[in-house]
Amino acid sequence: MAKEILTAKNIIKKFGGLIALKGVSIGIRQGEIVGIMGPNGSGKTTLINVISGVYMPDEGRVIFEGKDITYIPSHLRARMGILRTYQTPRPFRKLSVIENVAIAVRNNPRYNRENVYKVSRDILTFVGLEKYIDAPVSSLNTFMLKKLDLARALALSPKLLMIDEMVAGLTEAEALEVSKLIKELHRQGITLMIVEHVIPFLAETCERIIVLNEGKIIAEGKPDEVISNPAVISSYIG
């Protein structure tokens, strides 16, 4: 069995009186595709924010490749290979499509300065945005913006990539394209953590699913086991 690339131990995150994460512990093995699901407000995105360094946990530790990164700032985590996308795409609107990716490539120590735009073009072609390389961000639709978010994350050669609700709101054809991209990234050896509401997509894509509800893990296991778990059904139906 592959060793764990990421371990989150007993994570507690509070926002004033609201406890978003109540002692969540997860382990993700190298090369695995893990799905995170749960109803709205269950703490999925907060967990991504804690792992990516956007939020510091109130309690608990985050270990990446054996190193304690709990209090390491987000830009260093990104450079270490912990990348993410956003539920609502967050492009830099003052920059063109290729510039959005190029500033991320620039922070990747694997590439030298001369290659920044070439690498950026390759990444944009990989996600299917080759026709929009020099376009302004304002010319992209939501699906394209989600792909741009993904391209920006890929620019830093992720070891662990957290994809936050990329399929939500997409057409079937677009969801299929995302599924293909994810499978290709997995084939390339990237460890993936996919936060999603679309259960069939998760069941088809992931090797293991973790279910969060009200800031706690209520189920964990293979997709078919988890989906038929009475606690999971009850959390969704209420």
């Binding site: 990516s52 360094g53 956007v54 700032p73 987000s74 830009h75 985590r77 990104a78 450079r79 990348l83 993410r84 956003y86 967050r90 492009p91 830099f92 609107r93 003052k94 920059l95 510039e99 190029a102 500033i103 991320a104 620039r106 922070n107 990747n108 920044v116 920006r152 994350a153 620019a155 830093l156």
Partner: peptide, 24 residues
Amino acid sequence: GFFGKSLKAIGDDEIAASTIGINT
């Protein structure tokens, strides 16, 4: 230059900038 592009990225969305490796 890239310095200015990083500044523009920070002005647009500082959190997104930091999560793509920019030391904001």
